Amino acid sequence: MADRTESSIVIDAAPGVVLDVIADFEAYPEWAAEVKDVTVLAEDGDGWADQVQFTLDAGAIKDTYVLDYDWDVVEDGTGVVSWSLVSATVLKAMTGSYTLAAEGGGTRVTYRLAVDVKIPMIGLLKRKAEKVIVDTALKELKKRVEA
């Protein structure tokens, strides 16, 4: 799973505002089209989600999976939010991250994602699916934050 997809976008809001939207998992079904349901399973003492269950319906891929989160961010919201797959039905592996950096008056968000599925899939198709997921997520995040 060494291959991954990466893309960036600049959002017209402070890093802390962007981080708050990323951390508000229960609201994902309101703005992330493929996410149908989200349940926070565990939080650390600071209120950051440690484990989150997602129900995804992305056309060809439908799955319910649990991600483990790591929050390496500072008070202003800059830093890295990363995750890895704990359990799933269709997914075999998933690692990803959002890197938030102040840029001008806004935030540059870089999204990295690597996914592997249990069903056989050509690498080129897998990377294309990752690119669609990453680009869609960044556009939807930008729209939600700037609304």
Rank of each mutant, 00 (worst) to 15 (best):
W83M: 07
A58G: 14
M121L: 13
I133G: 06
V90H: 07
Q53R: 15
E43R: 15
G106I: 05
Q53D: 11
Y65W: 13
K118M: 02
T99W: 03
L125Y: 04
K36G: 06
V90A: 12
V52Y: 01
W31V: 09
K126Y: 07
D50S: 13
M121A: 05
I9Q: 05
E43T: 14
A42D: 15
L124P: 02
I61G: 02
A101D: 09
V66P: 02
S87A: 13
D20F: 04
E103G: 06
G96D: 07
I11P: 00
F25E: 01
A129G: 15
A27R: 15
K126A: 13
V132M: 08
G59D: 08
W71I: 06
I133N: 10
I122P: 00
G16V: 08
S84P: 06
A102Y: 01
W48T: 13
F54C: 08
G104N: 11
D20G: 07
D50L: 10
V38R: 07
D12Q: 15
G45L: 05
Y65A: 01
D76W: 05
I133M: 12
Y65D: 08
P15E: 08
G79H: 03
K118D: 03
Y28H: 09
I122W: 09
A102P: 02
I22A: 04
V52G: 01
T107Q: 01
G106L: 05
K128G: 00
L56P: 08
D12A: 12
V52D: 00
W71A: 04
Q51C: 04
V66Q: 12
E75P: 02
V21S: 07
T110A: 10
D116Y: 02
V109S: 04
G105D: 14
A32N: 02
A13W: 05
G123P: 01
K92M: 10
K92H: 04
A42Y: 12
D76C: 03
L125D: 04
E34F: 14
S97T: 01
A129N: 12
W31K: 09
L67H: 14
D70M: 00
R112I: 09
G123T: 07
G59C: 09
T89K: 09
V86R: 11
A101W: 04
L100Y: 04
V134W: 03
A102W: 02
V117A: 07
E34Q: 13
